[in-house]
Design a protein around this nucleic acid. Structure first.
Lengths: 203, 203
DNA sequence: CTCTTGTCCCTAGCGCTGCTAGCAAGGAGA
DNA sequence: TCTCCTTGCTAGCAGCGCTAGGGACAAGAG
């Protein structure tokens, strides 16, 4: 009976932990959907609490603060970006075509999912980035960029730094256009120029 | 006497307008200094009002909202950026050296005056950008970039689009580094890579 | 079955934000 | 001197992120 009781306790605990984890996923999902639908300004703790049908303090039993929720959304976004970049890269034939496809996929992602993109790369989130402690989803997304840039790196160039520089170019195009600093119309031509200048000496 | 009275009225009105314009400049100056010293989060309307020794509603008699104050600071920043870019460009000899100098000056500006830079190029401010209605200070800053990029443009390239693309690269480097997404250490090497890839085929 | 213990979550509220309505004071003109 | 009109103030609204404290409910003990 003692063991049965213990098992019962265990299963109750595991059920609770499971439900708790599920609720945590729900918070992140709802935050993300709300942000994508109405922008991050609409994602207030009150609104989010109402949407998950719990009170505000529940959010803080899962996450340190609102920034941690955004960081969780950002990590999800990185995983998706990595998938899309990989698809673009593997579908292309040749190093130059792969880099172009990845660059276009990146820019498309930034334009199609602006809220997600901002959580990942614009807003200040307390995520470790360029360190080994960075979340694997994040490293994977960067790795996809790296895999596309590395083949076209020149002899003396550090491919890691080249990837970072290429990334910066893409990020600049996306953010400046999205904030109205660059006209949308010529986006494709600017993107082509950027990619062209990075694949200048490659095959 | 009637004309004397009118003159008196005029001078009183002009004095008032002068004082009002002076107060407006004070608001912008204090907002900028506060932002540069403690970041834009510290620039609240209450704090700003206290600093200029007027009450909050006075701010709204000069500017539509807080964003308009930030926009005014941004315009000031553009004028300064244009000056620094021009100095860098004219001091360099040769098209490639000029582009490198301008690129470095731009990045240095972004790192040395982060709050100013954010008001200009990161935060959402309702300023017309890539249109003829854009403030002249803004067009001048872009013009400085253009003057540096145009000489190294290849035959078929639109120098305007090339400038925008180069700008995006610089902007990406500055913002990703400032937000911790790129390590500070390798900044110079990334900047050199970017400039190198844009001056590849030029003299 | 009753009582105690402990967990979970909600109500209420703090201090702050950007922004505004409405009033009081002071100078301009008759 | 009296009236009007400009000017800038006090006070307040609605909403923000976040948290303290209590009440309900389930779990274990006697």
């Amino acid at each position: 009976m003692a063991s049965a009781a213990r098992i019962s306790v265990m299963s109750i605990q595991t059920r609770r932990e499971r439900e708790r984890a599920e609720r945590e996923r729900l918070i992140v999902t709802v935050a993300r959907e709300l942000a994508e639908a109405e922008g991050w300004d609409a994602v207030t703790t009150r609104r989010l609490a109402a949407e998950i049908e719990y009170s505000q303090p529940v959010l803080y039993s899962h996450f340190k603060d609102k920034g941690a929720i955004m960081a969780a959304v950002a990590v999800q976004g990185c995983a998706e970006l990595a998938v899309e970049l990989r698809a673009a890269r593997t579908a292309a034939v040749g190093a130059r075509a792969a880099l172009a496809a990845v660059g276009e996929a990146y820019a498309t992602f930034g334009r199609r999912r602006p809220a997600l993109y901002d959580a990942m790369f614009t807003h200040l989130v307390d995520l470790p980035f360029a360190t080994p402690e960075a979340p694997p989803e994040l490293q994977e997304a960067f790795g996809e960029l790296y895999s596309a840039v590395q083949p076209i790196a020149a002899e003396g160039d550090d491919p890691g730094l080249l990837t970072e520089t290429f990334w910066a170019g893409l990020h600049g195009l996306v953010t400046l256009m999205r904030s109205g600093r660059l006209p949308e119309a010529a986006h494709d031509r600017r993107l082509a120029l950027l990619i062209g200048h990075f694949t200048a000496g490659a095959s």
